[in-house]
């Protein structure tokens, strides 16, 4: 996996909710059954905030959020949709359960980046190295960094998220 991403900054505020701001929970259901396919979910990411977000967002773009990104019932679906769009995520903070779901969704992230909001504006061009924690603001010629994810969690993201990582574990355990 290439841990460096380059793209547009989509800047949001604090307390984005998993079940409405990031992806409206009712849209997870198709014919009464929940769908966890990122290719379906990506069509509904952030549409309650920016109706044409899925069309405008490009792989490599970076979502920059404030404090408690993904608060609420820790449904993973919006995070899977973000991964489906090929986005990266930087936040000032995330609740622990959401942190776990971000890893499970295979979404590259720097989840506890102090004051990142003061460093970027919506529309800036960013280059982010999720392995080292370094962020370059190409629009402003500035750089800053935060602690990257521990290798053990980054490896789960690199494998593609929870299910591929579990599959590998089961193979390693030789239980199937």
């Amino acid at each position: 996996m290439n841990w460096t991403m380059r793209g547009r900054c989509w800047k949001f505020g604090d307390n984005l909710s998993l079940d409405d701001d990031i992806l409206e929970f009712a849209k997870v259901f198709v014919e009464g059954v929940r769908v966890s396919d990122p290719n379906y979910l990506k069509k509904h990411v952030f549409t309650n905030l920016i109706p044409d977000f899925p069309e405008r967002a490009k792989p490599g773009d970076i979502v920059v959020a404030g404090k408690r990104f993904g608060q609420g019932n820790p449904h993973i679906y919006g995070l899977l949709g973000m991964a489906g769009l090929g986005l990266g995520l930087i936040a000032e903070s995330v609740p622990h359960f959401t942190y776990r779901m971000i890893v499970a969704a295979g979404l590259p992230t720097l989840p506890f980046f102090n004051d990142i909001g003061a460093f970027v504006e919506d529309g800036d061009e960013l280059r982010v190295n999720f392995k080292t924690g370094e962020v370059e603001n190409l629009s402003r010629g500035a750089r800053c960094e935060s602690e990257p994810l521990p290798d053990v969690l980054r490896e789960i993201i690199g494998t593609g998220g929870f299910l591929p990582a579990l599959k590998k574990r089961l193979t390693d355990m030789n239980t199937i």
């Binding site: 449904h75 993973i76 359960f97 499970a104 969704a105 299910l163 579990l166 574990r169 089961l170 239980t175």
Partner: peptide, 9 residues
């Protein structure tokens, strides 16, 4: 939540 299949498996 989403990681529950690990428990079932």
């Amino acid at each position: 939540v989403f990681e529950f299949p690990a428990v079932l498996a």
